[in-house]
Simulated assay, not measured.
Amino acid sequence: MELQNNKSQTEKRQALRERILHLQPTDFERLAMDIFRYQARYNPVYNQYISYLNINPELVTRLTHIPFLPVQFFKNHIIKSVGSPGDGSPVASAIFQSSGTTGQQTSQHHLFDETLYKTVSARIFQENFGDLKQFHILALLPSYLERNNSSLVYMMQHFIAESQSELSGFYLKNVEELLQTLTFLSSNPDGRKVLLLGVTFALLDLAESAYDLSFLSKIKELTVMDTGGMKGRRQELLREEVHDVLTGRLFVDKIHSEYGMTEMLSQGYSHGSGLLLPGFSMRILLRDINDPFAIYDQNITKSKTGGINVIDLANLDSCSFIETQDLGRFGETEGSFYVMGRFDNSDIRGCNLMVI
């Protein structure tokens, strides 16, 4: 019987995985509901959480009625929906760990399906910016590279490989090498776009350095992307203040941003002004700041601020329904959102977001 149950779970998972990979917008809600019922049954931590709330998963029929797992659970539990202890279940191929200040307990996210993560993240990027092969990707991520368990570095390693550019790569503290590469690319040797992606403090350090960066204006298609985070290296600033410095000193008219975190496998991207668009496998809901079980959809007043709840279908093997500690509001564009900051009592951590 146990063997049959394991086979049934495997078959259900494979069917859900295929639907994620071929997901169209009109099927999002139905697939989310099916993943909810799958995880409510096969994820021990999520199952217990739902049980404590006295919720019958079979009676949940709308996205706004789904219980969202508080993100703090990733600090104290292994959140997985693949097998049970002692049954020979898969071993994680990677364990992502969030950054944090000294003494803080950090989140861990166990990755069991590298191909799913890579495929979803690449599709989200390419739907926003175009084919990865059209880019030279320069990643200025010193604080992340100093660790070996960053989901952002893992994703960028994949993007760099997919770009098939000998000039794509990571830069830890070798700023002069980065500038040499950018100088060469300013001559537009092959017509590719240039993506300069970096953690906030590193981009600010570059922008405020003594180097003459005026040559950057010669790069016709330069995308500067801020992944957020001062990492305790600099004073926290408002997003507008940061982007004013970066646009002026890096000779671009806008700064793009990425929204993601260790506990998520999908991403959202901003093309400027802080307005974020969730990836195809992701949807944002807001909850009442005083009642975490009162969930809003996007048919509420756009100026209303609430706690951000994320539906991330790519989290098939962990939990797709995450109650974050971020504050946000909806944008005017369908599905879009702004990140307004964090709850006062939440941990300061290195997720990819900036305060507006």
Results as ranks from 00 to 15, higher is better:
residue 220 K to C: 00
residue 67 P to R: 01
residue 238 L to P: 00
residue 134 Q to N: 15
residue 119 T to H: 12
residue 100 G to M: 07
residue 232 G to V: 01
residue 177 E to A: 11
residue 353 L to D: 08
residue 143 S to D: 14
residue 69 L to H: 04
residue 75 K to L: 04
residue 247 T to F: 08
residue 136 H to S: 12
residue 311 I to R: 03
residue 6 N to K: 13
residue 271 H to R: 12
residue 54 N to R: 14
residue 201 F to Y: 14
residue 70 P to H: 07
residue 283 R to C: 06
residue 316 L to S: 07
residue 173 K to E: 10
residue 201 F to E: 02
residue 226 D to T: 07
residue 214 S to D: 11
residue 216 L to N: 01
residue 117 Y to Q: 08
residue 236 E to I: 08
residue 275 L to W: 00
residue 110 H to W: 13
residue 96 F to C: 09
residue 41 R to L: 13
residue 156 M to G: 01
residue 36 F to W: 07
residue 337 F to K: 04
residue 154 Y to S: 08
residue 111 L to A: 09
residue 312 D to W: 04
residue 179 L to A: 03
residue 272 G to Q: 02
residue 217 S to V: 01
residue 233 R to V: 03
residue 243 H to P: 02
residue 170 F to I: 12
residue 326 D to T: 01
residue 251 F to A: 11
residue 185 L to M: 10
residue 279 G to S: 00
residue 299 N to C: 00
residue 174 N to A: 14
residue 226 D to L: 10
residue 84 S to L: 15
residue 222 L to T: 09
residue 349 R to F: 03
residue 211 Y to D: 08
residue 137 I to R: 06
residue 193 K to I: 04
residue 196 L to V: 07
residue 280 F to W: 01
residue 196 L to Y: 03
residue 336 S to A: 15
residue 212 D to N: 14
residue 185 L to V: 11
residue 106 T to S: 12
residue 58 E to K: 11
residue 70 P to F: 03
residue 17 R to F: 05
